[in-house]
Design a protein around this nucleic acid. Sequence first.
DNA 1: AATGAATGAGGGTTCATTCAT
DNA 2: AATGAATGAACCCTCATTCAT
Lengths: 200, 200, 200, 200
Amino acid sequence: MQMKKEAVQQAIFQSAKNEFQEKGFEKASLRQIVKTAGTTLGNFYNYYENKEALFASIVEGAYTGMVQLIKNHHQWESNDELWDLKDIEVWRRELKTLITPVMPAFTTPFVILIEGSEGTRFAHAKEDLLAVMEEHFMAHIEEFNPRYPNPQMAKVMAEQLIFGLVMIVKNNEDDEVRQQLIIEEILFFAIGIMGILKAF
Amino acid sequence: MQMKKEAVQQAIFQSAKNEFQEKGFEKASLRQIVKTAGTTLGNFYNYYENKEALFASIVEGAYTGMVQLIKNHHQWESNDELWDLKDIEVWRRELKTLITPVMPAFTTPFVILIEGSEGTRFAHAKEDLLAVMEEHFMAHIEEFNPRYPNPQMAKVMAEQLIFGLVMIVKNNEDDEVRQQLIIEEILFFAIGIMGILKAF
Amino acid sequence: MQMKKEAVQQAIFQSAKNEFQEKGFEKASLRQIVKTAGTTLGNFYNYYENKEALFASIVEGAYTGMVQLIKNHHQWESNDELWDLKDIEVWRRELKTLITPVMPAFTTPFVILIEGSEGTRFAHAKEDLLAVMEEHFMAHIEEFNPRYPNPQMAKVMAEQLIFGLVMIVKNNEDDEVRQQLIIEEILFFAIGIMGILKAF
Amino acid sequence: MQMKKEAVQQAIFQSAKNEFQEKGFEKASLRQIVKTAGTTLGNFYNYYENKEALFASIVEGAYTGMVQLIKNHHQWESNDELWDLKDIEVWRRELKTLITPVMPAFTTPFVILIEGSEGTRFAHAKEDLLAVMEEHFMAHIEEFNPRYPNPQMAKVMAEQLIFGLVMIVKNNEDDEVRQQLIIEEILFFAIGIMGILKAF
DNA sequence: AATGAATGAGGGTTCATTCAT
DNA sequence: AATGAATGAACCCTCATTCAT
């Protein structure tokens, strides 16, 4: 019973994407993955070196994309004059052009990378992204209201925003929809933060 | 070597709370729990029927509390006249009185219930809370801007808010701090949502 | 079906000693060991941390004994005036008093340590002993015939002597017999070496 | 990508020789062998029936050579008048002419046959050779000192001599050097044995 | 001649749970 | 109340071998 190589590889890859998204790296079972893919455990090792290599093959692209994003994160700030605009629709348009080029980053592998990489060499990815985001939020607090008494919110915000992005990707297959929701998400954060900072 | 019954039970209970919070139900190891508790695997079964019963003992209170909260969630709406207040400090004061009675709900067991109950009979708890919250956010959309083109954000908001509460509890031991951050969190959501809804 | 703890531990230990001696660490099968010991694989881990810990429990004593022997190996030289004695029976008596205190080193665990420790943290033991022995033989060559044209024999001698000791232990259970044969072995080496060195 | 048949066969053969010498039959990995040989597992079976057939192809010559040597071993004795010669240099010359014709026997395949054939139909080869050698040494004991109280040394000697030959071949590539060391080895044994026998 | 897909058995290890003591 | 011996299933992984292409 022989299949085309690529077909099995693809079957394993897809099956693994599902399993890893549902359970994360550690809880995911190779036995389950290969069963769903319609092959055997022994045969799996004709396609991937081991469990972690399979995981890496799924997540690697998302990881390097994320690293790039982090490296260029100072560019985000450059557009912060937005904050002064009164018309929210202008924000939406601006955000759209800003977001479009990084949209490829927000796919299922990104979700797996953030939520499911404990136990792998990518485990630090989430922390790294988190650190950058927290710093970013902290900078905003410093800028707009250095006397804001709850700076711990910067971390909460960071975790929440990343989690929100993950949820958007997870619950929506369509690229267009994802982009629109991400725009709303960012808008929501911008407005919310300005709101709680302004008042003190 | 015999200890007072209650002391052992407490040791197991505390140790389990840590283990379950760190790893969730499925990844948590009874061997690790009893080792930290200073007893043995065999003895464990003198105190709890099995792994899930131990989990239940930790999470049950938080669960029934959550169910109560959900049952009474129509009361939340009643105070939504808040939304019209201009002075954000008034909101903060109002929220404080609103939040205080439900603060006991937001403790470690709540975190475990939401994040770590996969594989137990409490697995649905998160979904239930989520459904109510989503409905709640949806109602706000309906009320303030029925033509808002991204109603999927209701679910994102719901997941995000719950996650935010979990993060606040997880990262802050002090009750006072927790409460303050939860107030900021809710404020943040209120302002953010109003912001993205208003404009259309 | 419950046995006395010590009985099972002993059964595993003995079974493992056989298996390790026959196959060495890497080829030895835990499944085979526990089957011979009359227990199950799962139960094995109630007695030993893992395969290597079991191996270590067998070999550790022999290893530290060997290290001591090596540390004190300069004492061997001090008695080399023996070499001048004409009467071989005097040698035998001298060797007996020399050998007696180190006899406990030459047991089955020593055999396993030398022959079967590849793949464990004891893998270097054989090399260490070898190096000391080779150096020892080389010193004799230097002393008695620095012009001997085949100094590579020092290494061959070293490997052969160690191997001979291992064989003696392996093929003879009785302590008395072992000691006598070891004496003959050393005598044999002494005479043989002097013989091939003298002539040049 | 097709190679000349013989070239592939040779590549496998050489690669296998290394692998079998390093690890022995059972621990040797066909996957490793074919990888080093630059071909694939599947293709391997176009050249050899299975793992053991490959092993046999390497070892067969050494085995039949050894069998011949054993069959003719009575000839060894015929030259034992050597033992009476006083001048060791004469022995060396005599041994050289005696050894030269059998030198082709002492090559890598011989090493593999002796050290690495466990798990194959050649497993008994070492025992066979050993038996003959032991008998040989025993005969010397009978001849020179029938009252020697440690006849078990015959077996030790046999094992040691074979092992020594293996070590010499293993550690020295050059044929000339091998031959010289083998001569020294035999000399060493002759002198050593005479030494320990004489005295009783 | 050559590839690599597929199988099935075996390797060491961890786990929750049961039960005799 | 407490121990730890015992089980059986599941985990990831490697292996020699077969076979369709």
